[in-house]
């Protein structure tokens, strides 16, 4: 999966899971998902579980913090640096 595919998949997941039925045309890669409450603490657990299953990544303790999930861009970057299979 290339990084555009990853970005598209993660965006689609976030939209379906947290923004169902809403106008998301202005959901940019740098939109503050955590600070604006789109993903709350319970939502973050679901997101992490989705990412670990879909991309076979494992996050160590430090990276679990919300900072790495603050926007679509940071989530994609996190996946790219942690995928078991190298991203092309």
């Amino acid at each position: 999966m290339n990084s555009q595919d990853i970005a598209a998949e993660i965006r689609a997941y976030v939209v379906a899971e947290y923004l169902a039925g809403e106008d998301t045309s202005d959901l940019t890669g740098d939109y503050a998902l955590i600070d604006s409450g789109v993903i709350d603490s319970l939502g973050l657990i679901r997101l992490i579980s989705h990412l670990t299953e879909t991309y076979q990544v494992s996050f160590d303790d430090i990276e679990f913090g919300p900072d790495n999930f603050r926007s679509l861009d940071t989530i994609v970057a996190l996946i790219e640096t942690h995928s078991v299979t190298p991203v092309q």
Binding site: E22, D23, Y31, S36, G37, V38
Partner: peptide, 23 residues
């Protein structure tokens, strides 16, 4: 949009008070 409104809410409300869904 709901996203813009959440950004506004996030500036003035603690996170638990930001609505989970916005119509």
């Amino acid at each position: 949009t709901g996203l813009r409104l959440r950004t506004h809410a996030g500036q003035h409300l603690p996170r638990h008070a930001i609505p989970t869904s916005v119509h």
